[in-house]
């Protein structure tokens, strides 16, 4: 049985705008945030749900969780109707909204977990065990007594993830979980999620702007654009479809003719060839392999690797399908 089943899902929002020249009149306009989405997610899958800003990702998630009512179409989450069975469903799913907090900001962090355990009516022994586990794995021990409002962003995001997982949900939905985090914090959070999924078989649905999140956490990718599904398949398949290339930028000791490295495309040179841009497909080769080949041809002073961004992937996908 699927954990998530979405069928021809639609959600409209009403936007009221002032009418130019008429101070008191306002015009209501319907904006379709989600436009006929259909997909399913099986148990234990890890799915990256990506798309540009305003593509309808968060709206879809809110309908999956029973927060928003669909305009038309159907959603079933964990086999139930999320709007009707919201409270029952809430015990079985855990959601992190990267931009919103589910902690009580004026209380010490530990108290938020007490309150959540009470709200979820967790058996005390079970709640204690689970909390200890999360505190250790997400390294929360150092600030359990600190009021939430005084936590750093990195600390708070880890605390939020723990809050969403306290009741051991079978489906975990993460909406932009790494937004604003530094590289190290991102890495730690990802490692934790990989471990959590490996040990519990949790189903994971993740929206993000960060290709790194998707690469490290997800086997399957759904790309949504203007409320419609633009791609459903593996990440490597996505890279193949839209050639989501990474670009290695090398600064060389002295000017060289455009480098010809097998498995890469030479995108351009600057300063007579002191800086060169090489595009490569990360599913076929690695930055290290490309660099090793470059070093055979020239002395490398400095380098950087540019990741494809999601907007770029979506744009290419979209232009391809037309």
């Amino acid at each position: 049985m699927s954990v998530v089943e979405v069928d021809r899902l639609v959600r409209d929002f009403t936007v009221r705008e002032p009418v130019p020249g008429r101070r008191l009149r306002r015009r209501a306009r319907q904006v379709r945030a989600v436009d006929g989405l259909t997909f399913t997610v099986g148990p234990g899958e890890a799915v990256g749900y990506i798309g540009a800003n305003g593509a309808g990702k968060s709206t879809t998630i809110k309908m999956l969780a029973g927060i928003l009512v669909p305009t038309s179409g159907t959603v079933r989450t964990c086999g139930t109707d999320p709007v009707r069975a919201r409270r029952r469903l809430a015990r079985r799913i855990g959601v992190v909204f990267g931009q919103r907090s589910q902690l009580w900001w004026d209380l010490p962090l530990a108290e938020s977990y007490d309150i959540l355990a009470a709200i979820h009516r967790l058996e005390p022994a079970r709640a204690r065990r689970r909390r200890a586990e999360l505190v250790e794995e997400l390294e929360l021990g150092g600030f359990l007594a600190t009021p939430v409002r005084q936590l750093s962003l990195g600390q708070r995001m880890r605390a939020e993830v723990a809050a969403a997982l306290l009741h051991e949900p079978e489906l975990v939905v993460l909406d932009e979980p790494t937004i604003g985090l530094d590289v190290l914090s991102k890495q730690r959070l990802r490692e934790f999620l990989v471990h959590e999924r490996g040990s519990r078989g949790t189903t994971l649905l993740l929206t993000t702007h960060d290709m790194g999140d998707v690469e490290r956490l997800c086997e399957r990718v759904l790309v949504v654009d203007h409320g419609r599904l633009a791609y459903d398949g593996s990440l490597s398949g996505l890279a193949a479809t839209v050639a989501a290339e990474r670009v290695l930028v090398v600064d060389l000791a002295e000017p060289v003719a455009p480098l010809q490295v097998p498995g890469t495309r030479h995108l351009g040179s600057e300063g007579d060839g002191v800086r060169q841009h090489l595009a490569f497909d990360p599913t076929r080769t690695t930055a290290a392999a490309v660099l090793a080949q470059v070093q055979r041809a020239a002395e490398v002073r400095d380098l950087s690797v540019a990741e494809p961004d999601i907007e770029d992937v979506v744009r290419r996908l979209w232009s391809r399908s037309r």
């Binding site: 809110k62 969780a65 029973g66 927060i67 919201r86 409270r87 029952r88 809430a90 015990r91 799913i93 959601v95 909204f97 919103r100 907090s101 589910q102 709200i119 979820h120 009516r121």
Partner: peptide
């Protein structure tokens, strides 16, 4: 602010919470 979305993620009625 829209944070009400978080309240609806809890297995209690909005009022009880």
């Amino acid at each position: 602010t829209g944070d009400i979305a978080v309240d609806f993620l809890r297995p209690v009625s909005l009022l009880a919470g």
